[in-house]
Design a protein around this nucleic acid. Structure first.
Lengths: 115, 115
DNA sequence: CCGAATCCCAGGCGATACTG
DNA sequence: CAGTATCGCCTGGGATTCGG
């Protein structure tokens, strides 16, 4: 199964970003700083509690985000990007930039067809 | 960089790289230049013809790779990274670099536990 | 040699309801 | 408020077979 181990490290990074809501969560926390669960949920229309919990857990397991529980009633849990997680920021920015260009690229392609 | 969730284009880039064999295909073609179908298949133990064809088609549809068919018997089809596709190289390199560090990060984490 | 067509399964994702 | 628990759909990926 082992191919060239050194060539396949791309997938380790990819695996962390893949997930329907992970890029959104990461960009949001990078932008807004620390947020509690309900704030995250409110800012992502369409996500269910289950999915938000799951994606947050997975990011936490990889040490990308930090989770702080305040033992009180009602409960309060805050999430934030870890110092380590910030090392992903350049990659996210590069992908966002490339994605923006690619969207234009596809639009040009469609326009050519209809002309 | 616009980080509003609804304007986030990270997923456009992500969608192109996601696919079990796509990073491998891209890195291979970036390194080796033009290759024919059978060479690609031979270099990726475990991939089926169907999957290789599918992943190549998807990359071709996004103009990331180029496909040249030589009308002869037996058939010969060559694949290569397009000029446009090369714009993904910095991202792949960044992810590879990050992935390498992350692998170390996880190893350190495991070592701490067992000490 | 290249790839399309078919069948199949696991897991990601979602809707909904329940709990401390 | 911040989660679990259950159920079910849908799609990516794989084995196999057929065709030009």
């Amino acid at each position: 199964m082992d191919k060239q181990p050194d060539l396949c490290r791309v997938e380790d990074a990819l695996g962390i970003l893949v997930g329907k809501w992970k890029p959104i969560i990461l960009l949001y926390l990078l932008q807004e700083g620390t947020k509690r669960f309900s704030e995250l949920k409110r800012s992502m229309p369409g996500i269910t509690q289950k999915m938000l919990t799951k994606q947050l857990r997975e990011l936490e397991d990889e040490d990308i985000i930090e989770r702080v529980v305040y033992p009180q009633v009602p409960p309060k849990v805050e999430y934030s990007i870890s110092e380590y997680g910030r090392s992903l920021e350049p990659i996210l920015e590069a992908m966002h930039e490339w994605g923006t260009k690619h969207t234009l690229h596809k639009m040009n392609k469609l326009n050519k067809k209809s002309m």
